[in-house]
Simulated scan of single mutants.
Amino acid sequence: MSVAPAAPRVVWGEPALRLISRIATFCLVELQKLRHDRTELVTRAIQPILWLVIFGETFSRIRAIPTGDVPYLDYLAPGIIAQSALFVAIFYGIQIIWERDAGVLTKLLVTPTPRAALVTGKAFAAGVRAVAQAVVVVVVAALLGVAMTWNPLRLLGVVAVVVLGAAFFSCLSVAIAGVVLKRDRLMGIGQAITMPLFFASNALYPVELMPGWVQAISRVNPLSYEVSALRGLLIGQPTNYWLDFGVLVAAAVLGIAVASALLGRLSR
C-alpha cells in the first residue's frame, strides 16, 4: 500500500515574516548609503537651523504671529522638525531614477520580492534619515531655550510621527518619479510643491490666521497633522492624537500603494 506524501508544513505567519524581513533588508541597504555619505545630514541641517535661529528668533521678538501663551520659537520648533523631514523625503524619488539608470531597479523588480516591500523599505529608510535630521533640530531648539518635553514615551511618539510623515512624502516622490520618469522633471516638481506644502500647513502660524482657501488646503495636508502631533508631544499643545496618527498612517499606506503601482513604469 502506497503512502501519500506528507503535505509541506506551513508555518503560521511565515509570509508576513518573510515580507517584514525583506522590508528590513531594503531599509538597511538604504541606511548603509547614509553611513557612507554623512555630509548629507550636515548640509540638510543648515536650512532648518537658519529657520530657527533667524526666522524664529526674529518673529519671537516682534511678536507678529499670535500663538497664545506659547512663545513663538516653541511654537515654531515642531513645524521646523516636520519641515526638515519633508525636505529629506520629497526628493527621494531621484534615487529611484538613479537606480533605474544604473540598472539596479530592474534587477530588484525581477526578484520575487513584492514591489510594496521595496517601496516600504525605502519609505522607512527615508523616515530614519528624517529622524536623524530631527535630532539635530531638537538639539538646536533646546540650545535656543525651547521648552520641550524629554519624556521617553513622548520622544518615541515623535520618532513615530517623523517616520510616518517622511514615509508618506518619500512615497509621494517615488510616485511622481513613476509618472515623470526623469530626474530634472522630478526636481522641478519637487521644488514646486515643497514650499506650498510647507506654507499651506500650520508649521509657521495657526490655521485660524490663514485665508479660507488656504485653511481648506491645510485640512487635507498631511504635514499639518504631523506638525499638530509633534506640537502635542513636544510642547504639550492640545491636539487630537487619534486623528493625527490616523491621517499619517492612512497617508503612508496610501502612498506605499500608489508608489508600488507606479514603480513598474520606471523599468520600462
Rank of each mutant, 00 (worst) to 15 (best):
F91M: 10
A64S: 13
T67F: 08
T111V: 06
R100T: 09
H36R: 14
A82V: 04
I62Q: 02
T111W: 07
L41E: 09
L41W: 13
T106F: 04
R61F: 09
V104K: 04
L86N: 06
G56L: 10
L28K: 09
I80T: 03
P66T: 02
L28M: 09
L28R: 10
L108Y: 11
V53W: 10
D74C: 01
R61G: 00
E40P: 01
E99S: 07
T113K: 03
E40D: 13
C27R: 01
Q47R: 09
A89D: 10
K33R: 14
D74R: 03
Q95F: 13
T113F: 03
V42I: 15
I62K: 02
R44H: 14
A102L: 11
L52A: 12
Q47W: 15
Q95S: 14
T111F: 08
R38V: 12
R61V: 11
Q83M: 15
I90S: 04
T43K: 13
A117L: 11
F59C: 00
F87R: 06
L41F: 15
I46K: 11
A123D: 02
A85F: 02
A102M: 09
L34V: 09
L31C: 10
L41H: 10
R63E: 14
L76Y: 06
T120E: 02
P78S: 01
D37H: 10
E99V: 03
G103I: 08
V104Q: 07
A102S: 09
I97S: 04
A116G: 13
I96N: 02
V88F: 11
I65A: 01
I81V: 15
P71E: 06
E40K: 13
V104I: 14
V53D: 08
L109Q: 08
F59N: 01
A24K: 01
I23A: 00
I96Q: 05
A24M: 05
Y72N: 01
A77P: 01
H36E: 10
L34N: 08
L108K: 08
P71D: 06
A116Q: 11
T43L: 15
L108W: 12
I81G: 03
L105Y: 03
P48E: 11
T120S: 14
F124P: 01
Q32L: 13
R63K: 12
F59I: 00
P71S: 06
G68S: 06
T111Q: 13
P114V: 10
Y92V: 02
A64Y: 08
T106I: 05
V88C: 06
D69F: 05
G121I: 05
A123H: 03
A89G: 12
P78D: 02
G93N: 07
I62F: 07
P66N: 00
R115D: 07
V29L: 13
T113I: 14
L52K: 11
V104H: 05
W98A: 12
D74E: 14
L86G: 06
L86Q: 04
L118I: 15
A116K: 06
I49F: 15
R100A: 08
L28P: 00
T111P: 03
T113M: 06
D101I: 00
F59H: 01
L34Q: 09
R115W: 06
G93C: 05
A64R: 04
L28A: 13
D101S: 09
E30N: 09
P48M: 09
F26T: 02
R44Q: 15
